[in-house]
Design a protein around this nucleic acid. Structure first.
Length: 888
RNA sequence: GGAUGCUUAGCUCAGUGGUAGAGCGCUGCCUUCACACGGCAGGGGUCACAGGUUCGAAUCCUGUAGCAUCCACCA
């Protein structure tokens, strides 16, 4: 074995080997007798590249997949890519523009060809980057949301939902992205706080004289939309305005007269308490308009300029230009009462960054409120389980307030909506052009010209079908029947609404099945100080850089250990370096065993082991295997990592390997053989259970240490399974006593500033020798604590200091006489602490309430503790008394 | 405005009724034949605050404060 662990070459070696040997290749139906285990990868965008968030999400999935594979499950980790409609279109469009090509001139078909070409060349780099993480998916079997089979599925689902009246076309106010010139969904909006103004504008009453009031003041942040006002609304109980309800206003700068209406929606506290009603450009106003049967006047073009529905002087102006002009005109007319500077939230499109406009258009909608009913039920009933559970609340909140989902987009890249229009705009939804014509012919009684809907579907529509379309639905495949519902979805909370909720809605309706049993919501990655990673802050960690520097295993181990059930995890390089050190530690421990000719023998029978130290480590390792299993099964990746880390480093390396050295260097051949086999067995178990988290080093060590057969892979081996042999507990107690004794002596050495190289002389009484089996561990105590052990009261108390370990007095002889008073007060302090502790427990045991109400096991524990404390205290007290005798 | 989290050692976080834990950092000692990406030994916390429930609260309940996130909000 090399002296250092060269992660780069080992990562390369196994990435290639696994792929060449097709270790992770999946062939449908190949393992019919094994239980299936299935995870669908949340498909990254074809435009995406690997960031730490991906690394975290994919590592956790790979840990589960590798673990279940070792457990003997027939695993499928289905990889895939998302076509990412808007993002991809914008990207390719930009690239074409830089070459001087305009998308619109190119035309739809050629543009789509260009996107496909781009996809073939540079789409899906992220999949290659995933390989470097060590992901054990089948890269030859990648699904794409836009490939033939998925397109077929999307059409089928659309047709079904349309025929069931769950998809419909409607003219409504939608969120409009004027840059993209497309509708977007409410989720694709980000509200940003910006500086703005509130303008107070006077609207004159038509017959002001008769009611003693000349005008009503309205407040608005968007004066330009007044051109589309159709009413002013006040609260019916607002004393300021009750007399004016039903009167009419002259809308300034236009020749229109608009009514004053009463509506409960109005908030008397806001603005002036009178609201200008602009149904075409505000969602709430739209509803007020509907309630009062008001006209809808749209004054904007698709790119958010003023259209021809207004006086010619405003036409073609941008909103800002129009605003400026209108404010000036109002001021000239003395109708502008005041302007207040305010901060307010304004909606912007997440992707294009344009200011979103409420805009009246014809769009396709999915009746989400109806589908939500079943989607809520399956989570309430526990069929679908959120981990951690409290994400259910977020899900329910959203689902209970869900609105119809606008699924049509006015872009080119995506699933074109399978709808055709007849001459009278009658809609025919069909699987193909031919089918549509057939439907139309049946309807009209003759062959007619049809026009296909140009819109495409929201990207999330096709990803919403991901769990079953990847299993080739609507074809009735073997794997679809076998694997659906899938086992677990691992994703971030940021897409619970976008994706998780929609998958549950669509899958429960289309398949009459849940898409997955568990949803593990992982945390968002932040920097080491808990700040969001952003390019402008310069605190972005690139997982590929981290892999280069620390190794994929170190990164994966860090990720696992960070994944506590919280919302965010802070990742810093220091932490990764720490786990890189752990990987190195494991490497060196194995190297030590190789140097000492330890071997792994799979016929090794753990129950045949005699030496207590070996029994002890076997018991500990078996415990660790169980802890790791429980942790992974419960999605506690942090606990799995912690269990392995502590066992390997804190127990195996720090204690067992040190304890084993005296045996190895001794001459008890039988014991040496047993110890070498035990050590080899133990490290092999660690290597196996660490494999899901750190696949590269463990695969290399399995090869170097011959844990796997020649040409076999740890990745394809099985998870260890052992039960604790009877009687090993006793050894555990003994060995742990010896370790405590060693620690106590070392501690004393350090406290007394005794040189580490000196061999100290210690003395233990004959009685203690038998009681604590000191002679059995003498060699270990001698070597590890660097002492020479003698029995009986040989040394003068005047030149010894003492430590008491579980009642056993260990005297340490010094070259010079000790200050007995100082020694006494040191021991006395220890005694005081012991007595305080034992009194504490004594008091509790004397408490009637405690005895009556505490559980039996708790009481038994307390009694046990009390006995132990009292034994130690008594022994210490006796010893102090003996010191008194010495001095007196 | 509505909701959900969080507040524990210098830092980052576990622990969720029974005597406060880890990693990193820090201090001292050690170039001991697996490993200085190491070893040994230490120091360090009235578990945000105030009430309550309980024999017993870091843990359960109520309230307060601060922080974070999500949703809503263009008068």
């Amino acid at each position: 074995m090399d002296k250092t662990f060269d992660h780069k070459s080992i990562e390369k070696k196994f990435t290639n080997k696994w792929e060449e040997q097709k270790i992770f290749s999946f062939s449908p139906g190949s393992k019919p007798s094994a239980q299936p285990y299935t995870i669908m990868l949340p498909p990254p965008n074809i435009t995406g590249s690997l960031h730490v968030g991906h690394a975290l999400c994919y590592t956790l999935q790979d840990v589960l997949i590798r673990y279940k594979r070792m457990k003997g499950f027939d695993v499928l980790w289905q990889l895939g890519l998302d076509h990412a409609g808007i993002v991809t279109q914008l990207l390719v469009e930009k690239e074409l523009t830089s070459k001087g090509i305009d998308r619109r001139q190119l035309g739809r078909e050629k543009f789509i060809d260009a996107v496909w070409e781009w996809k073939e060349q540079s789409g899906g780099t992220i999949l290659n980057q995933m390989r470097r993480l060590g992901t054990s998916g089948d890269f030859s079997r990648v699904c794409f949301t836009m490939d033939e089979q998925r397109q077929k599925a999307v059409r089928e689902v659309f047709i079904k939902l349309y025929n069931d009246s769950l998809i419909y076309r409607d003219k409504r106010l939608v969120n409009w992205d004027p840059e993209l010139k497309s509708a977007i969904s409410d989720l694709e909006i980000v509200n940003k706080e910006v500086d703005g103004s509130m303008w107070y504008i006077k609207y004159p009453l038509v017959d002001g004289e008769s009611c003693g009031q000349q005008y009503i003041t309205i407040a608005t942040t968007r004066p330009e939309t007044m051109l589309a006002d159709v009413a002013v609304a006040v609260h019916p109980d607002d004393a300021r305005y009750t007399g004016l309800i039903g009167k009419r206003l002259r809308l300034p700068l236009t020749d229109r007269v608009i009514p004053i209406v009463a509506d409960e929606y109005i908030d008397r506290e806001k603005g002036s308490g009178a609201l200008k009603v602009t149904p075409a450009h505000d969602f709430n106003d739209f509803e007020i308009g509907q309630r009062h049967g008001l006209e809808v006047i749209n004054i904007l073009t698709p790119d958010a300029k003023i259209n021809d529905n207004v006086a010619s002087e405003y036409r073609g102006l941008t909103q800002d230009q129009a605003r400026e002009l209108i404010l000036k005109q109002l001021a000239d007319l003395s109708l502008l009462e005041k302007e207040e500077k305010i901060k307010h939230f304004v909606p912007y499109a997440d992707r294009s960054g344009a200011r979103v406009e409420p805009y009246i258009t014809d769009q396709w909608f999915l009746d989400a409120p109806k589908l939500a009913v079943e989607a809520i039920r399956v989570v309430e009933s526990g069929e679908v389980r959120f981990v951690p559970k409290n994400w259910e609340n977020t899900y329910f909140d959203w689902m209970h307030n869900i609105k119809p989902w606008c699924i049509s987009r006015q872009i080119w890249w995506g699933h074109q909506i399978p709808a055709w229009y007849g001459p009278d705009d009658k809609i025919f939804v069909a699987n193909s052009d031919n089918d549509a014509h057939a439907l139309a012919e049946k309807h009209y009684g003759r062959r007619v010209e049809l026009r296909r809907d140009e819109d495409v579907l929201d990207t999330w529509f096709s990803s919403g079908l991901w769990t079953f379309t990847t299993l080739n639905w609507p074809d009735e495949t073997y794997e679809l029947k076998r694997r659906h519902p899938t086992d677990v979805l691992i994703t971030g909370f940021d897409i619970i609404f976008f994706w998780v909720a929609r998958m549950i809605m669509l899958t429960t309706y289309v398949c009459k099945q849940i898409p997955f049993k568990d949803i593990y919501i992982h945390a968002i990655v932040r920097d080491e100080k808990g700040r969001k990673m952003s390019k402008s802050k310069g605190n972005v960690l690139d997982p590929l850089d981290l892999i280069d520097e620390f190794g994929a295993d170190a990164l994966r181990f860090t990720i696992a250990s960070l994944c506590t059930p919280t919302r965010s995890v802070n990742m810093g390089e220091e932490r990764i370096a720490g786990y890189r050190n752990f990987i190195t530690k494991l490497w060196n421990a194995t190297r030590f065993l190789v140097m000492n000719e330890c071997k792994y023998d799979d016929r090794f029978d753990v129950s045949s082991v005699k030496a207590s130290i070996n029994q002890w480590i076997i018991a500990k390792v078996i415990r660790t295997i169980a802890d790791t299993e429980n942790a992974i099964e419960g999605y506690r990746f942090d606990e799995a990592a912690k269990a392995i880390y502590q066992s390997v480093w804190g127990m195996f390396c720090d204690w067992y390997l040190e304890l084993v050295k005296p045996i190895m260097n001794g001459n008890n051949q039988e014991k040496i053989v047993e110890t070498k086999l035990t050590a080899g067995w133990a490290i092999a178990q660690f290597i196996k259970i660490l494999h899901p988290i750190a696949p590269f080093i463990t695969e290399e060590l399995a090869e170097a240490f011959a844990i796997t057969e020649k040409d076999a892979f740890l990745s394809a081996s099985s998870w260890p399974c052992y039960s604790l042999p009877k009687g090993f507990d006793k050894s555990t107690e003994e060995v742990e006593w010896a370790c405590q004794a060693i620690s106590a002596i070392r501690s004393m050495r350090s406290d007394m500033h005794l040189p580490p190289s000196d061999i100290l002389k210690i003395v233990i009484s004959e009685a203690d020798k038998t009681k604590y089996s000191v002679d059995k561990y003498e060699i270990f105590i001698q070597k590890l604590a660097k002492v020479d052990v003698k029995y009986g009261p040989t040394y003068n108390s005047l030149t010894t200091v003492s430590v008491i370990v579980e009642g056993c007095v260990i005297k340490i002889a010094l070259d010079q006489s000790v200050d007995i008073q100082k020694e006494k007060s040191r021991l006395q302090a220890e005694l005081t602490k012991l007595q305080a502790d034992s009194q504490n427990i004594h008091a509790r045991l004397a408490n009637q309430g405690f005895l009556a109400k505490a559980s039996e096991s708790v009481i038994a524990d307390h009694k046990q503790q009390l006995i132990s404390l009292e034994t130690r205290a008594n022994r210490l007290q006796e010893f102090i008394a003996s010191l008194n005798n010495t001095t007196s």
